[in-house]
Computed example of a mutant assay.
Amino acid sequence: MRRTIFTEEHDLFRETARAYYLRECAPHTEEWEHDGQVSRAAWAAAGKAGLIGWEFPEAYGGQGIRDFRYNAIMAEEMAATSSVGIGLGLQNDVLPPYLGGLTTDEQKDRWLPGVISGETVCALALSEPGAGSDLGSIATTARRDGDDWVIDGSKTFITNGILADLVIVACKTDPQARHKGISLIVVERGTPGFERGRKLDKVGMKAQDTAELFFHECRVPAGNLIGEENRGFYHMMRNLPTERLAIAVSSLAAAERAFDLALDYAKTRTAFGRPIGSFQANRFALADIRARLNAARVYVDGCIMALVDGHLTADDAAAAKYWTSETAWQAIDRCMQLFGGYGYVNEYEIARIWRDNRVQRVFGGTSEIMQEIVGRSLGL
């Protein structure tokens, strides 16, 4: 489909993003999946190319551009180039409101230059073994002791957990107040009492390091609190619509890549003396997928522009995340079916896309949580 939401500047940025992924990421797919993490050299290259933190002020190395269309381009080109693993989506889509909107000038001076250059990798530590979507139930605590916060607890499913140099940790600073007692505190690499646990062995996204984190009497300077004390839950809720739209964007980009692979395979793979795409069942299946992805593209592009214009609501973002991740999963699964037995062989890209995208229906809030949010917005 012809898309109308991008300008010439966006097209130039897309060329830069594509060149970066093809040069620095796509050739390392097998290596990074084996290692379970990407190289720091790829992060540094992204920073050098201006592909991290463009919305931060120029004084810190950013470009002062706040436009989610650039974020969408990064996700789309990552899928289109078959790149894996590098957590730039977290760094660009999720963390800027925290590091740009909740930090003091002193904190910005300390942290932003390294983040924008790619030298400093960040993580957001919210989920715990006993608390996922229910953030009010987190058990990690932070108590004030003089000029320090002392953190105790654990986190799990943390993207960039192994590589991270800065971790924004959600802590209970008022344990009796549930969600009204959460604060956000930055823990830096090398802080005594901060340890990394297992690199989790996931079904998919093998190249993206996802880890357990542990904090035992972890003493952090009081100056590492970001935002307001006991207002962390509200800070997080304000940022969730962008995160959920980013998941919708990446889900659709992966489905479009899967469709391209399936279409090419249907034209070149033969059975009974003819291309498998010439059989009506397969031709109709591909036609159905194309129509669904066209509808999803219009929907997602509309949400992107709503966010750019400041009109995307939390309910709309939840609906987009739910519908797009579910639709993309159905499309990817059907595309994989066209490959027959080869679709289940890991060396085929379609198998990796299938593995990697199952989690889109889970993180950022499960599909069931998204339905609950939308349902409540209907007055039910």
Rank of each mutant, 00 (worst) to 15 (best):
M205H: 02
K206G: 04
A207M: 13
D209M: 02
T210L: 07
T210F: 02
A211F: 12
E212V: 09
L213S: 03
L213W: 01
F214D: 02
F215T: 03
H216L: 07
E217A: 14
C218M: 09
R219G: 03
A222P: 01
G223I: 10
G223P: 02
N224I: 03
L225W: 09
L225F: 11
I226C: 04
I226R: 08
G227A: 08
G227C: 06
E229N: 11
E229Y: 04
N230D: 15
R231D: 07
F233V: 01
F233E: 02
F233M: 06
Y234V: 04
Y234M: 03
Y234D: 06
Y234F: 05
H235P: 01
H235A: 11
H235G: 04
M237G: 03
M237Y: 05
R238T: 13
N239Y: 04
N239I: 13
L240Y: 10
T242Q: 15
E243C: 09
R244I: 13
R244H: 08
L245W: 03
A246T: 11
A246E: 07
I247S: 08
A248W: 12
L252D: 00
A253M: 06
A255E: 05
A255Q: 08
E256M: 13
A258T: 10
A258Q: 07
D260M: 11
D260S: 14
L261D: 02
A262Y: 10
L263T: 14
L263Y: 15
A266P: 09
K267A: 08
K267W: 04
R269Q: 14
R269W: 08
T270P: 09
F272D: 15
G273Y: 13
G273Q: 14
R274K: 15
R274N: 05
P275E: 04
P275T: 01
I276L: 14
G277C: 02
S278G: 03
S278D: 14
F279L: 15
F279P: 00
A281R: 09
N282E: 07
N282T: 12
R283C: 02
F284R: 09
A285G: 13
A285C: 14
A287K: 13
D288P: 05
D288V: 03
R290Q: 07
R292Y: 04
R292E: 10
L293T: 09
L293V: 07
L293N: 04
A295L: 14
A295V: 13
A295K: 12
A295R: 13
A295N: 11
A296Y: 00
A296D: 08
R297S: 12
R297A: 13
V298S: 02
Y299P: 03
V300S: 00
V300E: 00
